Measured scan of single mutants.
Amino acid sequence: FHVTIHVGDITFHIHGVSEEEVKKLEELVRRGADWREIKKTIEEIEK
């Protein structure tokens, strides 16, 4: 999957994300995680 996440003024683009990881990111966004937490999760996914 290709994912784009907008957190305030920050936009993250992630490529090659599995469905499971998409759900993890959706959950973070849904519970209102700040951009640092989302960035950390994205960095883990990209490894």
Rank of each mutant, 00 (worst) to 15 (best):
K39M: 14
K23S: 09
D9L: 13
I38Q: 00
G32V: 02
L28G: 00
E20P: 07
L25A: 01
K40T: 11
W35S: 04
E37T: 14
K40L: 11
V7Q: 03
V22C: 07
W35Y: 08
G16K: 04
E27Y: 12
H13A: 03
W35I: 13
K23H: 11
R31W: 07
D9P: 15
F1G: 07
G8W: 04
V17F: 15
E26H: 13
E37Q: 09
T11K: 03
H15P: 01
S18L: 05
R36H: 10
V29S: 05
E44S: 07
R31S: 09
V17N: 03
E19L: 13
F12Y: 14
L25V: 04
I45Q: 02
E44R: 07
H6I: 14
I5G: 02
R36E: 12
K23D: 06
K23V: 09
V22M: 13
A33F: 02
H13K: 05
R36N: 12
K24E: 06
V3C: 09
F1S: 07
V7I: 12
I38T: 01
V29M: 14
H2N: 14
I10M: 14
I5L: 10
F12N: 00
V29L: 13
R31G: 08
R36K: 11
E44W: 07
R36D: 12
H2Y: 14
V17E: 02
G8T: 02
E20A: 13
F1L: 12
E44Q: 10
I5M: 05
V7R: 03
E21M: 13
G16E: 04
E44C: 04
E46D: 09
K47T: 10
A33C: 06
V7F: 12
E27H: 08
V29E: 02
K23C: 06
L25I: 12
K23Y: 15
V3Q: 02
H15M: 07
D34A: 08
W35N: 02
A33Q: 02
K40N: 10
H6L: 10
F1H: 07
R36M: 12
I5H: 00
W35F: 08
T4L: 07
K47P: 04
V22L: 13
F12R: 01
V7C: 09
I45F: 12
V3S: 02
E20D: 11
R36T: 11
E43I: 10
I45S: 03
A33E: 03
R30N: 12
H13E: 07
D9C: 15
E21V: 14
G32D: 03
K40D: 10
K24T: 10
R31H: 07
V7A: 06
S18N: 09
T4A: 04
K23F: 15
E21K: 05
K24W: 10
R36F: 12
E43R: 07
R31C: 04
E21A: 14
R31E: 05
K40M: 11
R30A: 13
W35P: 05
H15A: 06
I5R: 00
F1M: 08
E44V: 06
V3K: 03
G8S: 03
F12Q: 00
V17C: 07
I10H: 15
W35L: 11
E27R: 10
I42G: 01
H13D: 04
I14G: 00
V17R: 03
I10K: 15
H6E: 08
E46C: 15
T41N: 07
T4W: 12
E19W: 15
H6M: 13
I42V: 08
T11A: 04
E43Q: 10
E43N: 07
V3H: 05
I10A: 09
E27T: 12
F12L: 04
K47R: 12
D34I: 02
K47F: 12
K47N: 10
R30F: 12
D34T: 14
D9W: 15
L25C: 01
I10F: 15
R36A: 10
V7S: 06
V3Y: 13
H15K: 08
R30L: 11
I45C: 05
D9R: 14
H13M: 05
I5S: 00
F1D: 04
R31P: 01
R36L: 13
T41F: 15
F1A: 06
V3D: 01
I42R: 01
I42T: 01
I38R: 01
E37W: 04
H2F: 12
V7N: 04
H15F: 15
K47C: 11
H2W: 15
E46Y: 14
E20Q: 11
L28W: 05
K23I: 12
K24S: 08
I38C: 02
S18R: 08
V29H: 03
F1V: 08
T41R: 11
E20F: 13
I45R: 03
F1E: 05
E46G: 11
R31T: 07
G32C: 10
R31K: 10
R31D: 05
R30E: 09
E27P: 01
I5A: 01
V17H: 02
R36G: 10
L28R: 02
V3P: 01
F12M: 03
G16F: 12
E19I: 11
